[in-house]
Design a protein around this nucleic acid. Structure first.
Lengths: 237, 237
DNA sequence: GCGGGCTAAAGTGCATTCACTTTTACCTTC
DNA sequence: GAAGGTAAAAGTGAATGCACTTTAGCCCGC
């Protein structure tokens, strides 16, 4: 076979997923893997907008059959980052370079209202679990702290999505986080930023505990606006 | 390195589709068709939350091979309305009955900001085209009026999504409208509601013409809130 | 009667295959 | 030498095949 490389699997919260996160909708490895490898090439700019994505060629390059490639492309098309007309090759949508920035803008629309709804709907025990997880990350900033804080970041935002009481909203947020995971792989955030993010999480959590939707939404929005300021700069149209 | 070179071919608004609507991301009929047939069964409640969706069984029932069914299921999973764990049968997510209501809530988060952004970004000629389309629907409420108004409804909202300057946002709105199209098939709106919707469209359009983001967003929100009040009642948890 | 394995049926994940469409390259024609 | 036509190559959409996993029925021991 051609390229069969390391296969850098993140394997986030393996198997368990302590909070209410169902975390299922992951397809069984191969197509998921292909999906991420193609997407990674796109967001890194290796496949610029307008590039053709031929299932035959990709299947050779990635060392799998065409079937999972076609399925992965199908999902990319559904996501809107790739375009295809019948019987034509799939094409990376022009403007794909800004995808991660635009995803962040979308989060700004979705997550504050989700936080507000979660403040009302989230079961107390789920909030407690988040609280415990936050404590487990701990103040001691040793070697693994950045990693633990990042894990908590995922867990925190996805738990809010889980408990906003709206499935399509949840799915949309989850999809954003699929991309966010990717942006982590592109460039790690600076420690000070992670630190601030962690503190902001605690603020949101407090609003959740107090069942204060408006404050939760505002804290979430602040959190996201800060995050956007320290996000690695990508060319904005 | 085997990567296909950029080959930047834009090929944006191919031939048809009067407004900016690219309208591509539709897969080539069969899987699209299967996708909609399964989805329709779900939102109609024929397949309740928790039902198993077996690709073998579905392929028999729908008279196609398993391949397009698997692809359609894969998209439903990506959309979050269906769940699957590796090697397990796909399952309709509990709560799927409320899907259309929740989609409407999601539109309420997405479309007002999209209208605001479109007020700033939409090219004047695109606004003019919408204006002409609105005129073409006309005030005379003959037999085809309801149909024309509905078509305009689609065209209008999707045009705004197209020109909000954010691809993932556009995709998310398009996805919502895929479901909205379905809710039309479930139950047609009352004429008086269509009428009001049409007038509200004109109000939004005016805000777009005046390049007034805040008014555009407010008019869009009002429009959506009205729409939700005359939406056919479905059981809300 | 009833729980615990064992086996066959059903189902999934992926590869392969085939018919049809689009692209490419070449060859003719002017 | 450029335009146009044609046939091979490459690509897509969908069906089928195959290895492996899960489910369901059955029998057995208790």
């Amino acid at each position: 076979m051609l390229t069969e490389e390391p296969h850098a699997q993140l394997e986030l919260p393996a198997a368990t997923e302590p909070i209410g996160g169902v975390h299922d909708d992951a397809n069984s490895s191969l197509v998921e893997d292909v999906y991420h490898r193609i997407l990674m090439r796109i967001v890194r700019g290796e496949l610029a907008g307008g590039s053709e994505l031929k299932s035959t060629r990709l299947s050779q390059e990635l060392g799998v059959s065409r079937t999972p490639v076609v399925q992965a492309l199908s999902r990319l098309i559904a996501d809107g980052i790739v375009t295809q007309r019948p019987n034509m090759r799939a094409v990376v949508r022009p403007g794909a370079e800004n995808w991660l920035v635009e995803i962040h803008e979308l989060r700004l629309l979705l997550e504050p209202p989700a936080a507000a709804k979660a403040a009302k709907l989230m079961p107390t025990e789920a909030i407690d679990q988040l609280q415990q997880a936050a404590v487990a990350v701990g103040p001691e900033q040793d070697a693994g702290w950045g990693m633990r804080a990042r894990e908590f970041d995922f867990q925190f935002h996805l738990a809010i999505a889980d408990h906003a009481g709206n499935q399509p909203l949840r799915s949309a947020i989850y999809k954003c986080w699929e991309y966010k995971r990717m942006s982590y792989e592109l460039a790690a955030d600076r420690m000070e930023s992670i630190n601030r993010g962690y503190r902001e999480h605690l603020a949101i959590l407090e609003a959740l505990r107090e069942r204060d939707p408006a404050t939760a939404a505002a804290a979430m929005e602040l959190h996201l606006r800060h995050a956007s300021s320290w996000r690695p700069e990508r060319r904005i149209v």
